[in-house]
């Protein structure tokens, strides 16, 4: 026995079906307007009957009709100068433009503030002996600051009883009193133009020694000698040129002396004396 709302719903569905049929059959109307009634009719039928009739609608047929609608929309957009491809290109261009606005300044700032990617101004010679004898591996270092702790300075070297000699050329634009500070474990020594400037030699743990040295404008040869006896190993050379706290010597003041050194004039190449 059907209830009153169910009967009313069925009547509603039938009314929509009739309206749709009337539109489709009438050559003076736009057939697509029947869809509203078809849709409403199915909904009314579904509510009123609550059975499987709604499932009888062919989903694929509806999908095909939906795709036809999409095609019609695309066609209309095309007539107005809009195509999916053009729209996609426009979106891509906008995305790329906005991404460029964000990325380009950041990358530029990073590039400007990065330390220069160039080889260091120090010539470092690593010896597998405590007294800088025997064959050495020579390389370029950016700074004299290492903390090997209890480890090896490089592969193939012993953890203890090794030594290093660093050489570079300091180019001073004016005469200055420079404060040098040498912290090391074990011994280290700073020579300037062959003269002992800071002496931190001997067997000890981490220890700091420093001196103020008056230097004329021009090129000066800096040499740091270092050895490790046992256990922890570390070294750091810092300097103060204009009264600021001692820090690593700025690379702009240093020149690489060359892979091979002239014992009489290690900075000859930098002087321009020796080509």
């Amino acid at each position: 026995m059907s209830t009153l709302p169910e009967l009313a719903g069925l009547a509603d569905a039938e009314a929509h079906a009739r309206a749709a049929l009337a539109i489709v059959e009438d050559p003076s109307t736009t057939p697509s307007t029947a869809r509203v009634h078809i849709s409403a009719g199915w909904q009314a039928l579904e509510r009123a009957a609550d059975d499987d009739r709604a499932d009888a609608v062919d989903r694929n047929a509806l999908r095909r009709e939906t795709q036809r609608l999409f095609a019609a929309v695309r066609s209309a957009q095309s007539e107005h100068g809009e195509t999916p491809a053009r729209d996609g290109r426009r979106r891509l261009a906008r995305f790329a433009g906005l991404a460029a606005v964000i990325v380009v300044p950041a990358v530029t700032a990073l590039a400007l503030t990065m330390p220069p990617f160039r080889e260091g101004p120090w010539r470092a010679a690593f010896f597998a002996t405590k007294d800088r004898t025997g064959p050495a591996i020579v390389r370029r270092d950016g700074d004299v600051r290492y903390n090997w702790a209890g480890g090896r300075p490089m592969a193939g070297y012993p953890k203890d009883r090794f030594s290093v000699q660093w050489d570079t050329c300091l180019v001073l634009p004016e005469s200055l009193e420079v404060a040098f500070r040498l912290t090391s474990d074990d011994g280290a020594r700073l020579l300037i133009d062959g003269e002992r400037a800071v002496d931190n030699w001997g067997l000890h743990g981490s220890r700091t020694r420093g001196e103020r040295v008056a230097l004329d404008a021009g090129v000066h040869h800096l040499r740091v000698l270092y050895f490790d006896e046992h256990q922890d190993a570390s070294i750091a050379l810092t300097a103060s040129f204009y009264g600021e706290r001692p820090e690593a010597i700025p690379a702009r003041l240093l020149r690489y002396p060359g892979a091979t050194l002239d014992a009489d004039d290690p900075c000859g190449a930098v002087h321009g004396v020796r080509e």
């Binding site: 380009v104 950041a106 503030t113």
Partner: peptide
């Protein structure tokens, strides 16, 4: 709409630059 989007991108870019500098 594009002007707002560009302004948003500029704000984000300004933050990114601050990040890189600091």
């Amino acid at each position: 709409r594009l002007a707002f989007d560009i302004a948003s991108a500029v704000v984000i870019a300004a933050v990114a630059v601050c990040v890189v500098l600091t």
